[in-house]
Design a protein around this nucleic acid. Structure first.
Length: 473
RNA sequence: GGCCCCAUGGUCAAGUGGUUAAGACACCGCCCUUUCACGGCGGUCACCCGAGUUCGAACCUCGGUGGGGUCACCA
């Protein structure tokens, strides 16, 4: 088999949303799976939509996502230019070549000259001008565009898409699309064909919005006498049943997700599964595993709705399986945004948070209550299962205070100490722990039990809160 | 509107003529437990509709319906 070469060709028109990133990911995985080459090309010919800094966002995103390219800006293969705006001169030459080969023609028509069916198809007015007319117009300096020539016969142009199968479009349904605009610049479609061919792309992965225009691209390849590439059109990622995920519609920006506390690889893992499924039932896949398992047969032909809940779950799985030190490193910046980072032992806070948050951004929300100890509702001491009420609390709290004064300040010691006192008093340890936890936190729900909360608060603060609670009882 | 494509639970999806129609998320219940979370166990929930073909159809064919895409001197 010929060496596989795929490319990802984003436009720097803003941030990179995950749908776009997924296309790049699949192109990357496909190349890796087949031991091929993955190329990055920047399609920046649309200066009107160019967004400052967007090119850097592309590089940053790819890097963070773990998608490395073999050729591209900064990794040039001798003589090849990977930034489209720097390739402008090439296209006109190719267009002229195509005219010579009969696959394209000069068109001197005004922009409005299309068939009147309202469908916007060009009426082929200039398709068969004589050489004399063409030369005369050119000599007169008349503005022109160059259009591709679709046969005027009844044929069809067809190809076999690797994910959708056989696709056929009749010539009569195709337009003589413009290749070179009147300003001499190529249209996106034309530049794409030229670029893909000159970079030796063998497999084109792109959104399925190109599914029905691909026959026209193929006619260009044919007219040049070039070998047609293979195509893998991808079903879109949807926001809901009616809307695609898009830059303008939502916050599906990769970097935003990272800023919210999603781990880059969790995002990559999730989007890999949106529109593609591995052979087995394993859903948590490292990049190496994705590269190994990626296969065309798993690609879906129908759209997938983006499910934030599942991505959160996957992110949580990754967070929970991280070694603590690694978690601490990525989590600290998020902890720093909380109200408690300056108050308590950060390592303890992070150890409590790791198994309980789904995204790093959940950390402040999970812990902030610790900074807000106030006159909580005393009814919290009423707990049927542990057989506690206000009277029990009033009886147990003094014992807890005494015991904790001399207790070693570790989780195990605190737990043992409190249990022992409870036992001596003839109550279950659950009763004691419930009362202590309520007293020191003032909350029914806390991230961790009584001993963990006590450990976190520190002996002094813990005793202070216990005493305060006792006073109120 | 023309043309192209798609259609399995709320969501992601496996499934390619004969299955008790996988698995995951979400949801619900139980267990574990010092609350929560984690974990374990279990449950509810699906083949868009209608005709064919066939002994037999989620799978094949045709027609509907629904949805998406595309019809620019934008990319």
């Amino acid at each position: 088999m010929k060496e596989v070469r795929t490319r990802f060709a984003p436009s720097p028109t803003g941030f990179m949303h995950v749908g776009n990133l997924r296309t790049g990911l699949y192109a990357y995985l496909f190349a890796r799976k087949h031991g091929g080459t993955f190329i990055l090309r920047i399609e920046d010919t649309d200066q009107g939509r160019y967004v400052e800094g967007a090119t850097d966002a592309i590089y940053r995103t790819l890097e963070a996502a773990g998608i490395s390219y073999d050729e591209g800006p900064g990794k040039e293969k001798e003589g090849v230019i990977y930034v489209q705006s720097q390739r402008k001169a090439l296209y006109m030459q190719y267009a002229l070549e195509l005219i010579a080969k009969g696959g394209a023609y000069y068109c001197f028509c005004d922009k409005r000259n299309v068939t009147d069916g309202g469908v916007g198809k060009y009426d082929k007015h200039c398709a068969n001008l004589s050489q004399e007319e063409i030369q005369a117009n050119l000599a007169a300096g008349k503005p022109f565009v160059i259009r591709m020539r679709v046969p005027e016969t009844d044929g069809v142009s067809e190809y076999d898409d690797l994910v959708y199968g056989h696709i056929a479009v009749a010539y009569k349904d195709m337009d003589d699309m413009i290749l070179i605009k009147s300003d001499g610049m190529p249209t996106y479609n034309f530049a794409n064909v030229i670029d893909d061919h000159s970079m030796g792309i063998t497999h084109i992965l792109r959104g399925n919005e190109y599914l029905s225009s691909t026959p026209q691209y193929n006619m260009l390849y044919d007219a040049f006498g070039w070998e047609r590439p293979c195509y893998l059109h991808l079903a879109p990622i949807m926001r809901d049943h009616e809307h695609k995920l898009s830059k303008r519609y939502g916050d599906a920006n990769f970097e935003d997700f990272v800023a919210k506390g999603f781990l880059p690889h969790a995002i990559v893992n999730y989007i890999a599964l949106l529109g593609w499924s591995p052979k087995g039932n394993q859903e948590i896949l490292s990049m190496a595993e994705l590269e190994e398992q990626f296969d065309i047969s798993g690609l879906s032909q129908s759209p997938s709705i983006f499910d934030g809940a599942k991505m959160r779950w996957l992110n949580a799985e990754y967070i929970r399986s991280m070694p603590f030190e690694e978690f601490a490193t990525v989590a600290r910046p998020f902890l720093a945004k909380s109200k408690v980072a300056d108050l308590f032992d950060n390592e303890l806070l992070l150890r409590l948070a790791q198994p309980r948050v789904e995204t790093l951004g959940d950390i402040p929300e999970l812990l902030d209550f610790l900074a807000e100890y106030e006159d909580y509702d005393l009814q919290l001491f009423n707990h049927a299962k542990n057989k506690t009420d206000l009277a029990v609390a009033a009886r147990l709290l003094p014992l807890a205070i005494e015991a904790l004064k001399g207790c070693e300040w570790t989780n195990d010691a605190i737990l043992a100490c409190l249990s022992e006192v409870a036992l001596a008093e003839g109550v279950k340890k659950g009763a004691m722990l419930w009362c202590v936890r309520i007293a020191v936190t003032g909350r029914a729900v806390t991230p961790g039990g009584a001993s963990e909360m006590a450990l976190l608060l520190g002996r002094e603060e813990c005793l202070r809160r216990l005493a305060y609670s006792l006073e109120r009882l």
